[in-house]
């Protein structure tokens, strides 16, 4: 396994005193807390921070760690193995590892400090604890959210054996999503969380729905928004245009004299629910990059014909 540089993780020097370590930990903990940080590896970083702080805040653990660091307990392959006969003082005490998430500490940590106290739950058989609730963010395509459908997810579920030792197993679930879920919506799957201890009830699984970005549509509450490019003549003369919606194409009537930015509403073509949303269509008048000579001459004619029109009247000219 890899040797973890706890000083580097906490961004402090080897000579840093306890208060510098605490300050740095607090600062980084705020930065990488998974509930605050949007960085992809925030959860991993936060766990690493907790582990590094657990060691460096404790004088005994820190000096044991420093010892190993100086010994250079690195193998030829660059990996780490504690020296033969290594035993940490923390391994003897029940309350050895006290961090809030000590059950998530790495193999590296456990190889040095053992897993007493942290990783072991009460092994008393009459001890009953409800299983942990689990959380899972589920990203759906808009179409999937609209139609509903089946998705397979894999969860890491904590499980404790008869002695109370906690390990993680992968659990695969096939989940049928009802039609018409909305972003941010939470769904409970009762009893699909971690198993209970001592015959207690299992926890629940909470799914949070997220929408993957769509190439054409955006979501505004229950409404679907589409920007629709139209030609200047379609805008001027009006037209009936085929428009994509989440449930197939529909014909949309563009009124005569439409402008860029005008909004049209297709009723009931938003996200479906008890009261479905609408699809909002924002018009965008689009010109070809180049015109033919004939077209240019038609535009010149148009310019003469409409010479009284001042599109900048609102600018006070």
């Amino acid at each position: 396994m890899e040797f973890k540089d706890y000083y580097k993780i906490l961004g402090v020097t080897e000579t840093a005193d306890a208060s510098a370590i605490k300050t740095s930990y607090r600062k980084l903990a705020r930065k990488y807390h998974p509930d605050v940080s949007k960085e992809e590896n925030a959860e991993h970083k936060f766990k690493e921070l907790g582990e590094a702080y657990e060691v460096l805040k404790d004088e005994t653990k820190r000096s044991e760690y420093d010892q190993l660091r100086k010994l250079g307990a690195q193998q030829a392959d660059g990996g780490f193995r504690p020296p033969p006969g290594w035993k940490s003082a923390a391994d003897f005490s029940d309350a050895g590892n006290t961090g809030p998430n000590s059950e998530h500490f790495s193999d590296f940590f456990e190889s040095i400090f053992g897993n007493a106290g942290g990783n072991r739950r009460q092994s008393n058989e009459r001890f009953r604890v409800r299983g942990e609730d689990l959380h899972y963010k589920m990203a759906l395509l808009l179409e999937e959210a609209q139609r509903g459908g089946q998705q397979q997810i894999t969860l890491r579920v904590p499980q404790s054996d008869t002695s109370g030792l906690v390990s993680h197993v992968d659990k695969t679930l096939n989940i049928k999503i009802p039609a018409g879920v909305t972003p941010g919506q939470r769904i409970r799957l009762a009893g699909q969380g971690a198993p209970g201890i001592g015959g207690a009830e299992a926890g629940d699984l909470f799914l949070e729905i997220e929408f993957a970005p769509h190439p054409h549509f955006t979501v505004d509450g229950k409404n679907i928004v589409l920007t629709l490019p139209i030609s200047p003549w379609e805008a001027a003369l009006g037209a009936t245009i085929e428009v994509p919606t989440l449930s197939g194409k529909v014909n949309l009537k563009i009124p005569k004299g439409s402008n860029s930015g005008d909004k049209l509403r297709i009723k009931g073509k938003g996200l479906s629910s008890a009261s479905p949303g609408d699809q909002l269509v924002i018009l965008r008048v689009t010109l070809p990059k180049e015109h033919s000579e004939a077209a240019e001459s038609l535009y010149r004619q148009l310019a003469e014909q409409e010479s009284t029109f001042n599109p900048r009247a609102t600018l006070g000219e």
Binding site: L173, N174, I175, P178, R186, A190
Partner: peptide, 15 residues
Amino acid sequence: TPTIHIADIEHTAAL
């Protein structure tokens, strides 16, 4: 084969 779990929307109303 894993069983299919139906994410019942009614569970959203759980109290």
